[in-house]
Design a protein around this nucleic acid. Structure first.
Length: 672
DNA sequence: TCCTTTCGTATTTTT
DNA sequence: TACGAAAGGA
């Protein structure tokens, strides 16, 4: 406790009612949460099993668990819940699946699966091309996040387009039910609905979770807000931590106003602000504060630190995006030597993933090691999707999406014609494709040969599922991929033997991860079954996959979004141009404030130095476009900036010897 | 079923 | 421009 400042201690000690901790960037919010958990257990005598801490990412949950583990003894930590929102929801659904009308072993559709299902529905029901699949998926997701059901949406539809989307929504939900499956949004939505309709079940959960802590509260959506509200009940024993200035996920349903809404819903709410920053120099914080002051605020907040003024913030202008990337690369080499820093002390942040390409080329040229976060996810890979489909089907035979994905992978000579007939039969009997295969009576639809192939597949699958439970699960899974000659299939379908090998290794990595999960808590109360392990895989809760990589000495390349929660001694932010940062779409849709917060997040990642770059012209879609420096540059405290680089082509600004942009001049005039 | 060509699109991303 | 997806042809 003595290692916390006065405000932090106050936040830890206040346990009798609802508490909102407004924690600025780098103010030690995770310390507050972890130490509070320890305090609740050790000082207040609350059993760990009655405490739940909720985060948004697996990584955050893992870190929190680790840090709590260091603070309290293992025996006292028993039963403590530290999980993501989605994982908590999954646990609730799993325990109450009967009431919700799901069979054990239900599947979880990831967003790719969901998109494929939507595409199928549009194609099948409307026989139209699917150009608006992404739009539809977004709409459905938003509706689910807002707790709106298809019936409501349909009756309130503003136009025909929306009504059509609502009908897709209804069908989509029906298909999911038929497949005995839920999607990511359902993991939150279904518990909320369940609690609404069954107060006795809610009460049971309230008995279990007597103290709730939520991290990154500004990122909660409507459904998550209600889930929290339900769980804490009238006792309202909770601590939520958040920062409205770091809300950068509104575009996927986050409602930063949930912070302010707490004051209305819980009049007794205690508010504690953490403004002391333990990360950056004063100059960097002044820049952050000045920038974010341009946003309207419900809660005023100003970061400060004791780390001294620090160096000026450099703003570098280059001729074009090529020169920009080159400059960043040479700067890194230069700074590394000057400051005797490691490569891993540097991070380069940018708005869009594509911005990393040029930079990567330059870094390779200069032989600078780098680590790129983002990119194609492990789970987006073909072979992993195939493998996951097999796993899903083993656990949930009704998962038609999984069935269709792998029925002919590898080749089993079961083509579209056979599947269509099987589908007809299944629809007519209102059963899944798998069960249709097993049933007699499909003969009238299908030829003897096709029927035989389907039956053989089914009995093989059934046998594998049985062995999975009775025998050693991991061994059975390994056998599965041998059974189907998957390696052979990969060699047939890959471009090179090397690629095929890499893909097969991905499969074994997946099986390994599963094995590790199963063995992790073997013999303890936390021991999990194959079903749970598969769910965790779908929820991307994989272990320290690239822990070794992270330790290595590499420059970090990441998007501004991906940088949230991280910190680096030396930070570069690239592409400070209108239409890029702020992004064009955000300008058009009047969402500058979120872009500003994004910039704020970027600035506050820096511990010691911050360098901002922009290019005078940039190729966009093949055309050279002259770019305007970002308005955010004008919103920074000009005294803290040093301008460098080739002079702007703007003659007036040129006369200023690059000390200010035209826009900042205008700003000065306006403010006078 | 596979290969070529054309087309269309172009933020941010976790679960 | 540059990529992936879909469509069309052998």
């Amino acid at each position: 406790m003595s290692r916390l400042n006065a405000r932090q201690q106050e936040a830890v000690r206040y346990i009798d009612g609802p508490l909102l901790v407004l924690a600025g960037a780098g103010s030690g919010k995770t310390s507050v949460i972890t130490r509070k958990i320890a305090y609740l257990v050790e000082e207040c005598g609350i059993r760990a099993a009655h405490i739940a801490a909720v985060t948004f990412t697996n990584k955050a949950a893992r870190e929190m668990k680790e840090r709590v583990g260091k603070l309290i003894k293992g025996s006292q930590a028993r039963g403590l819940t530290v999980s993501t929102f989605h994982n908590l929801g999954l646990n609730i659904i799993r325990q109450e699946h009967k009431t919700l009308g799901f069979k054990a072993g239900f599947s979880i559709f990831d967003s790719e699966d969901a998109k494929a299902l939507i595409r199928d529905i549009v194609l099948k029901e409307y026989a139209e091309e699917g150009d608006e699949i992404n739009d539809l998926q977004m709409r459905l997701s938003n509706w689910k996040n807002d707790l709106l059901d298809p019936h409501y949406v349909l009756s309130h539809a503003q136009d025909e387009e929306e009504a059509r989307a609502a009908r897709v929504y209804e069908l989509y939900n029906r298909y999911l039910r038929a497949y005995n499956a839920v999607d990511f949004d359902d993991l939150i939505l279904l518990p909320v609905k369940l609690y609404r309709e069954h107060p006795e079940i809610l009460e049971k959960w309230q008995q279990k979770i007597r103290y709730l802590l939520v991290d990154e509260y500004q990122d909660t959506n409507m459904a998550q807000y209600e889930l929290v509200q339900q769980l804490v009940g009238s006792h309202a024993r909770f601590t939520v931590v958040g920062d409205d200035d770091q809300s950068i996920y509104a575009w996927r349903g986050a409602r930063p106003e949930n912070l302010a809404r707490l004051m209305d819903d819980f009049p007794r709410l205690r508010l504690i602000k953490l403004e002391q920053n333990y990360r950056s120099t004063s100059r960097i914080l002044r820049a952050a504060n000045t920038l974010i002051a341009n946003n309207p605020h419900v809660f005023d907040k100003a970061l400060w630190s004791e780390y001294g003024l620090g160096e000026e913030i450099r703003v570098i202008r280059t001729r074009n995006e090529d020169a920009e990337a080159e400059r960043v690369a040479t700067e890194i080499i230069d700074q590394k030597l000057k400051r005797k820093a490691d490569f891993k002390d540097f991070a380069v942040l940018y708005r869009g993933n594509h911005q990393s390409r040029l930079l990567e080329m330059k870094l390779q040229q200069y032989q600078i090691p780098y680590h790129l976060s983002g990119g194609t996810s492990f789970f987006a890979r073909h072979e992993i999707k195939d493998a996951m489909a097999y796993l899903r089907l083993l656990v949930n035979p009704d998962d038609d999406a999984a069935f269709l994905r792998i029925i002919n992978v590898p080749r089993r000579e079961i083509g579209p014609a056979t599947l269509e007939k099987l589908g007809q039969y299944a629809t007519q009997r209102d059963i899944s494709l798998y069960r249709a295969c097993q049933e007699l009576g499909a003969e009238q639809y299908l030829g003897e040969k096709a029927l035989e192939r389907l039956r053989r597949f089914c009995s093989w699958l059934q046998d594998t599922a049985r062995r999975c439970h009775e025998d050693d699960a991991v061994r059975t899974l390994k056998q599965l991929f041998t059974d189907i000659d998957y390696e052979d299939w990969l060699h047939q379908t890959s471009n090179s033997p090397v690629q095929a090998e890499r893909r097969m290794n991905n499969i074994w990595y997946l099986v390994d991860s599963l094995q590790r999960m199963l063995e992790q808590d073997k013999g303890t109360a936390d021991e999990i079954g194959v079903e749970d392990a598969i769910s965790r895989l779908i929820l991307r809760d994989m272990m320290e996959q690239r822990e070794e990589e992270d330790d290595s000495d590499k420059v970090h390349l990441l998007t501004l979004h991906a940088s949230k929660g991280l910190e680096f001694p030396h930070v570069f932010i690239m592409g400070l141009e209108e239409e890029l940062l702020p992004h064009r779409n955000s300008i058009e849709t009047d969402q500058i404030e979120e872009e500003r917060r994004l910039m704020y997040v970027g600035i506050t990642r820096a511990q010691r130095t911050l360098t901002l770059t922009y290019a005078g012209e940039r190729k966009q879609y093949g055309e050279k476009i002259e770019s305007t420096p970002s308005r955010f540059l004008d919103e920074l405290p000009q005294d803290d900036l040093i301008w460098e680089g080739v002079g702007p082509s703007d003659p007036i600004a040129n006369k200023m010897k690059g000390k200010a942009t035209m826009a900042s001049l205008m700003n000065l005039l306006k403010n006078e």
